[in-house]
Design a protein around this nucleic acid. Sequence first.
DNA 1: CCTACTGCCTATCATGCGCTAGGTAGAAAT
DNA 2: ATTTCTACCTAGCGCATGATAGGCAGTAGG
Lengths: 199, 199
Amino acid sequence: MGDDPSGTAERVLLEAAALFQEKGFAAASTRELGDRLGLRGASIYYHFKSKEELLYRIYVRSMTTIRERVDEVIDPALPAKERLRAMAHRHVVTVLTNRDLHSPIDLQRLAPEWRADILRRRREYEQLFLDQIAAAQNDGTLRSDISAEMLMLSLFNLMNWTILWYSPNKDQAADDLAEAFFTVFLEGTQAAPACGQRK
Amino acid sequence: MGDDPSGTAERVLLEAAALFQEKGFAAASTRELGDRLGLRGASIYYHFKSKEELLYRIYVRSMTTIRERVDEVIDPALPAKERLRAMAHRHVVTVLTNRDLHSPIDLQRLAPEWRADILRRRREYEQLFLDQIAAAQNDGTLRSDISAEMLMLSLFNLMNWTILWYSPNKDQAADDLAEAFFTVFLEGTQAAPACGQRK
DNA sequence: CCTACTGCCTATCATGCGCTAGGTAGAAAT
DNA sequence: ATTTCTACCTAGCGCATGATAGGCAGTAGG
């Protein structure tokens, strides 16, 4: 039970993530969710206390899994910049290959305590990236004339908007996108500048 | 009537944009929208045929206004890179100072023809940026080893995700963010590279 | 055999929804 | 003076929703 991938609760959670992503939280009904699982809508309430709790659990799952997936590639032996590269790559690929789970759904619909919990987890996750960025600034590989905070926001902007337009059928592989975004993040897009251009 | 900024239809449109952004399209009711305007919910239907049409009109307004605002700063006398800088700056500032209108709301809930219309307008808008990027690649100011399409996606990623976390009270001014993002887009984030590093 | 528990079911409740029908006060037009 | 139009109103229809209550088949333990 619980985390058993074949358990019903788990199936409900994953199917709910898919349904919420398709139709939005408010427009998705428990009955339709049941239909997709071969259940009656009311049976959902045996596994979850409310539709809102389901949304909360999806968010928790999203944050914990992406954190796990990114933790896997953090190699302390690598220089900070390369750690960051590996983390960014893993982040993009994870998000794009699991769009149901990681799509931004009505976070605002969550009760304040639950929302605060999710936001706290998000900040913890962002801190992981912030730490590497600050380290790379300290060892001189990343520019320091822009704050680490700002660099992190830029990186997440680059990585996260993708999920709203990405279509695995017609767009490039997630792997290629991840690489291109990080190249832009590191090198920028202007043609190779002359020496010493930036003070 | 119509575009008169004091006209009721206009007030409904703007208030609906705010309400939809706050609660989501499905969770926002016409009655609540009416309450905010000093109307009964049913009176909305004198000005709009359906709630869905309201959502469509909001999207149309979003696309036309941002296009107008960006068109204003396109100066053919400038080099392509500077045109692009001005456009990106105007885009970010416009979006962040008018979040109700430009927040991404359930586009998927729109009927297919309406959705297709909005997507067509979006592509036209993106084309504006794509043209400048291609021009800047041709005159040698932007790198050509990454496709213009990919560079455009990177730029929009950088610019657009912001609206989902930006809070005008506690975050930097939209103006500063716009500048920082474009700097990252152009120059990247690594410390000034040695000469001829990029092939 | 009995009991208890699990995991679902059916039936139902109260509520709120989008939207329509029909009315009406006041202004404008004839 | 009469008609028409505008911009709202009230009342309410039909329906879907989240959630609850209670039942019931199947399994496991004693």
